[in-house]
Computed example of a mutant assay.
Amino acid sequence: MAKNGKAKLHPTKHPLNANLRGSMVELLQKHLGTAIDITYQTKQAHWNVKGMNFIAVHKLFDELHETTEDYVDNIAERLTALGGQAHGTVQASSENTVLDPYPLDLVKSEDHLKRLADSYAKWSSELIKGIEEASEAGDDLTEDLLTEVGRGIDESLYFLESHFQSA
Score class of each variant (00 low, 15 high):
158 Y>A: 11
35 A>E: 01
82 L>G: 04
90 V>R: 15
107 V>H: 13
39 T>L: 10
76 A>K: 05
24 M>W: 09
146 L>E: 02
92 A>S: 08
116 L>M: 02
167 A>W: 05
8 K>H: 08
141 L>V: 12
149 V>Q: 00
72 V>D: 01
131 I>V: 11
72 V>T: 01
148 E>R: 13
165 Q>A: 15
14 H>N: 14
36 I>C: 06
149 V>A: 00
72 V>C: 03
53 N>F: 05
124 S>P: 00
158 Y>T: 12
61 F>R: 03
59 K>G: 12
66 E>C: 05
110 E>G: 07
61 F>G: 04
114 K>Y: 03
7 A>T: 06
57 V>C: 11
103 P>A: 14
71 Y>G: 05
71 Y>E: 06
48 N>Q: 05
56 A>L: 09
64 L>A: 06
12 T>S: 13
137 A>N: 00
56 A>E: 10
45 A>D: 03
110 E>I: 08
11 P>H: 05
136 E>L: 12
117 A>E: 04
16 L>G: 05
58 H>M: 08
91 Q>V: 13
80 T>V: 10
75 I>M: 03
83 G>L: 00
2 A>L: 15
80 T>Y: 00
31 H>Y: 00
62 D>F: 12
18 A>V: 15
74 N>F: 05
21 R>D: 01
144 D>I: 04
167 A>M: 05
32 L>T: 08
25 V>P: 04
12 T>P: 04
83 G>N: 00
70 D>M: 13
